[in-house]
Design a binder for these strands. Structure first.
Length: 227
DNA sequence: CCAGACGTTGTT
DNA sequence: GTCTGG
DNA sequence: CCAGACGTTGTT
DNA sequence: GTCTGG
């Protein structure tokens, strides 16, 4: 699955260039080493021929929700359920986005000693997760944008640790996913497959990643593998 | 029909 | 809002 | 995802 | 054990 991730680009301008959006839209950008459910992050969507990036909270809250309690349970959306579950159905048709990242964590070991593995591209390439977003109104006149990350079966690399992984899209796939007028859901679904095995490497890192309070470079310090 | 849910994940 | 369970 | 709380009442 | 918060 994907319950914690990173976006460590140091400067907003680097990220803006990679995303193809104006740097002004990344107001208050800061590098993140431990992005947790309910945190503010970013979603990228199509705007005519261009792209735009918008702030959004991680954990999908449907427009009809009475409170934000379910947000943490909807940080991920299974590919298998996108067009059957009422929580995702409409967003799958109308509100698809990309979620920029440069790594994600999976944990191994007993509950008393959970150890994080950081999966990232060997060349440090930006990862674009397939996402869905929604708008929710916590109180009159206030709208929040929230998002979820689509998950699929793990590829061979991730499968050593877990059986699920985020959908990672590149180039044309990413564009096709965001294309607003697309209504061929089967065509979209074909994009939602595990990424190539050599797309990611897993690095055991500090268990400081376990606590959401830790969000600094020390989280990603590599540690010896203890098998 | 109305009431109530609406979601994903995984360890000993 | 829309689907599922009773 | 993991960590940490898990409760009620009412006074400054 | 299970829910909430981040």
């Amino acid at each position: 699955m994907c319950g914690r991730f990173t976006l460590t680009r140091q400067e907003a301008i680097e990220l803006a260039d990679e995303l193809g959006v104006p740097v002004e839209s990344l107001a208050d950008y800061r590098p993140r080493y431990n992005i947790a459910p309910t945190d503010q992050h970013w979603v990228v969507r199509k705007k005519y021929e261009d792209r735009e990036v918008l702030p959004a909270l991680w954990g999908l809250i449907n427009s009809w929700a009475k409170d934000r309690k379910r947000a943490a349970a909807q940080i991920n959306a299974r590919v298998e359920t996108l067009d059957t579950r009422s929580a995702f159905k409409e967003a799958f048709r109308k509100r698809r986005c990309l979620v920029p990242a440069d790594g994600f964590f999976e944990w191994i070991g007993p509950k008393s000693a959970r150890r994080p593995i950081w999966f990232h591209n060997p060349d440090g390439r930006l990862l674009m997760f397939a996402g869905l977003y929604e708008y929710w109104q916590p109180e009159p006149d206030i709208w929040e944008r929230t998002f979820t990350i689509v998950t699929t079966d793990a590829n061979k690399t991730v499968a050593e640790v877990h059986d699920r992984m985020p959908v990672i899209l590149t180039g044309e796939q990413a564009e096709a996913w965001m294309y607003q007028d697309e209504t061929d859901l089967e065509k979209l679904r074909k994009l939602l497959v595990p990424s190539a095995e050599d797309d990611l490497v897993g690095t055991p890192v500090s268990d400081r990643a376990n606590s959401v309070k830790n969000d600094d470079p020390s989280v990603l310090v590599e540690v010896p593998t203890l098998l």
